[in-house]
Amino acid sequence: MNKERFGEHYQEHDLVCCYEHGKPIKARRITETFAYLTNKAELPKIRFHDLRHSHASMLLNNGVNPKIGAERLAHSSVQIYLDRYSHLLPDMQRGAVDLVEEKMKSIKNSVDNSTS
């Protein structure tokens, strides 16, 4: 839409965060605006970059396939994604153990019921 509106004056940089005419926004401006908005919303003080980490945490804690997480965060491989955020996984280990235990009990009950 802005490309059409500004026509030849639009500066194409293929950016996510830019001014409406395509010119890059300085990182400092994004940081300042984010700090202002989080303060105004009475949210805990975090850095703009922390949103990336929060996003990764949410993906991992909600069982999103690591391949999808790596793609969303533009990591070149799943291994890099997992290496960087693996410290978030200890709680997930308990869930994995519980899941395997539940499945094993289910199989045992099926076998027990079929032989009775």
Rank of each mutant, 00 (worst) to 15 (best):
T38K: 01
K45F: 09
C18K: 12
I107R: 05
Y36D: 10
H55T: 15
H55Y: 07
L99S: 15
Y81P: 09
N113C: 08
E42A: 06
Q79E: 04
V97N: 08
F48W: 08
N113I: 13
H87E: 09
I30V: 04
R84Y: 12
I30A: 01
A70M: 00
K103M: 15
E32F: 06
R72S: 10
P24S: 00
D14I: 02
L89H: 01
H87T: 02
D112Q: 05
L43V: 02
T38F: 09
L73I: 06
L73M: 01
Q79R: 11
D14S: 04
I30R: 05
L88Q: 08
R28C: 01
V16I: 10
E4V: 05
D112M: 11
V16R: 13
Q11I: 14
Y10H: 04
E20M: 00
H53P: 14
H9L: 13
Q79I: 14
I68K: 07
T33P: 11
M58G: 01
H87F: 05
K103W: 14
F6P: 13
I46F: 00
A56N: 10
E42F: 00
G69W: 07
K105F: 12
M58T: 09
D98P: 11
F6V: 02
K40P: 02
R52P: 09
N61Q: 02
E20N: 05
R52E: 01
R5M: 07
L51V: 14
D50G: 12
V16S: 00
C18A: 15
G7F: 11
L99P: 13
S110H: 03
